[in-house]
Design a protein around this nucleic acid. Sequence first.
DNA 1: TGCGAAATGTAGCCTTGGCTACAAACTTCG
DNA 2: CGAAGTTTGTAGCCAAGGCTACATTTCGCA
Lengths: 143, 143
Amino acid sequence: MTETDPSQIKGFNRARERAARALLEDYVEMIADLAAEFGEARITEIAARLGVAHPTATKAVARLKREGLAVSRPYRGVFLTEAGEALAEQVRARHRTVVALLRAVGVPEDLAELDAEGIEHHVSTRTLKAFEAFLASQGGEKG
Amino acid sequence: MTETDPSQIKGFNRARERAARALLEDYVEMIADLAAEFGEARITEIAARLGVAHPTATKAVARLKREGLAVSRPYRGVFLTEAGEALAEQVRARHRTVVALLRAVGVPEDLAELDAEGIEHHVSTRTLKAFEAFLASQGGEKG
DNA sequence: TGCGAAATGTAGCCTTGGCTACAAACTTCG
DNA sequence: CGAAGTTTGTAGCCAAGGCTACATTTCGCA
């Protein structure tokens, strides 16, 4: 019984995984942002920016470490592994594309940023491709 | 301690409320669908369609009742209140618009349906308006 | 160098959505 | 009318993300 019981996956896949993925992505994205800004991501800063208490961030980072997305030593900053960097880049690319798509269809910039936050975690790869194609065609027509 | 502790709202507002709203909307939408199809929504059917065990659906319905979105009596079907119907209609309208928007930018129909499921819960009213305006302009140009 | 402030870690509890197991009510039909 | 089967309800457990409280480790500066 060390592995997930298949009979529970279905239910698990409802709200749970939905939120779980978004959470992971939010943390990875934030760590990447902080790394770019300060060279490292400190637990306190991560917690502050995500609006959670620091133990919550600690737990999340522990999970990222379990999943091989980040590394850290006690009382030191958190860093993304290659896999983590890759995920971060993917998440950010998706974010940019979603924002661009929203703007392209007439959503005001500030609102586009805001809504993209929630939307981006639910855009499949194929849909993202479609967005890119659409943006390319738009750009072509206009520029 | 009967009311929400303000100091926890911030954190609560992160992942929690995000998933919570989506969940509520999913249930309300499903109940509306079943009502349209069978005249009433039975717990077992709701659970089956949402892919959860029936006690899970029971709990969710209890929550809908608490929030004044649905009513039901023991061993009877579940019905939406006016507020519930209103939310259902709003959710469905949003769903239709999101699907239409996705299709308009080139996302294949089946994929549009699938992704809309996750996306629709994160589209703000103003963004939805923008989508509608875009679709109207598209429709105007094309036909 | 040493002490106090700031940052982390750890423990432990709450809430929520899920599930299983079992009890109770309703339905169907012989 | 009553037994069998189906649908609901209830109880109780788990995992996960949040939080507070308290212990430790670092860091900054007199």
